[in-house]
């Protein structure tokens, strides 16, 4: 049975995958359903949700369509979350593999750098980086990755340290494989499974950090994000709480979907391991 089949068989995996697919479909079809700039003013201000079918989720203070903003916002949230997690995983896995495989001084030096990054809270790091480098999408991605690569680095290093002692690594040395090829072909792929399991946690926290940065106004002002929508709604929280609640629910659903998916994936991978 494939991993995908096993994933779909567990309720967590199936629900998580469904939520993520729905989100991805939403993000990709945003341009088709709402071709207009989501930041353009389309109607009266502060229309409550479900009162006017032209604006199913109502309008904000400036008369912008909340649904259009929400759909377009999913793009930014997902893209930033996934891109930041990908950068963090690639950098973390490479640094961890290198440290674990090289050992000695290189290991010491790399791990102290990891320590240095880990003592600063990830959000503060991102905040400082964005305020210095200016708010644009690539900067936000980098800023979030800056605080997220340390956990995969540590995990990859621990895995590599154990794999390094296995017979098949000794066998690769005996047949004359070069150290770099051993690290990348024999060690890294086998150390990756637990590191990948971490990816969902990183995606989820990246989405949240991105939202928090936008909430503080530290994101590209020309792009709608769920964080900036919540911030925008804050001004009229008493009279129109839905402006903050709607993107908040979207945010919660995304994080929930990612977590459920990772839970299901973890079970599916564990099932495969138990079988062999």
């Amino acid at each position: 049975m494939s991993v995908l089949q096993r994933l779909l068989r567990s309720p967590e995996g199936a629900i998580g995958l469904a939520i993520l697919c729905l989100l991805a479909a939403t993000a990709m079809s945003a341009g088709a359903f709402f071709p207009r700039d989501p930041l353009s003013i389309v109607g009266p201000a502060l229309v409550p949700p479900f009162s006017d079918m032209a604006f199913p989720l109502g309008t904000d203070r400036l008369g912008r369509d909340v649904l259009a903003e929400l759909v377009h916002g999913s793009r930014a949230s997902l893209m930033v979350g996934i891109a930041a997690a990908a950068v963090a995983l690639v950098v973390g896995a490479l640094v961890g593999t290198l440290a674990g495989f090289a050992g000695g001084l290189i290991d010491e030096a790399l791990m102290r750098i990891v320590d240095a990054f880990q003592v600063v809270p990830a959000f503060l790091l991102a905040l400082a980086f964005v305020s210095v480098a200016g708010a644009s999408l690539p900067v936000v991605v980098l800023a979030i990755a800056l605080g997220a690569w340390t956990a995969p680095a540590r995990l990859a290093r621990a895995e590599v340290l154990s794999i390094r002692e296995r017979d098949y690594v000794a066998a690769a040395r005996v047949i004359g494989m070069r150290p770099l090829e051993i690290a990348l072909r024999e060690v890294l792929p086998n150390a990756l499974a637990p590191v990948l399991a971490l990816s969902s946690v990183i995606v989820a926290s990246s989405v949240l950090i991105e939202a928090a940065l936008s909430f503080l106004g530290l994101s590209d002002p020309n792009i709608v994000t769920w964080g900036s929508m919540i911030a925008e709604g804050r001004n009229v929280l008493r009279s129109a709480p839905f402006l903050s609640i709607v993107p908040g629910i979207a945010l919660m659903l995304t994080v929930l979907g990612v977590y459920l998916f990772s839970e299901g994936l973890g079970q599916a991978l564990a099932g495969r391991k138990a079988r062999t």
Partner: peptide, 17 residues
């Protein structure tokens, strides 16, 4: 190395999974 080779005890552990 090409002239000195090795065979391990546990053949399953001696190959990349």
């Amino acid at each position: 190395r090409r002239r000195i080779q090795m065979v391990f005890q546990d053949p399953l552990a001696a190959f990349n999974p």
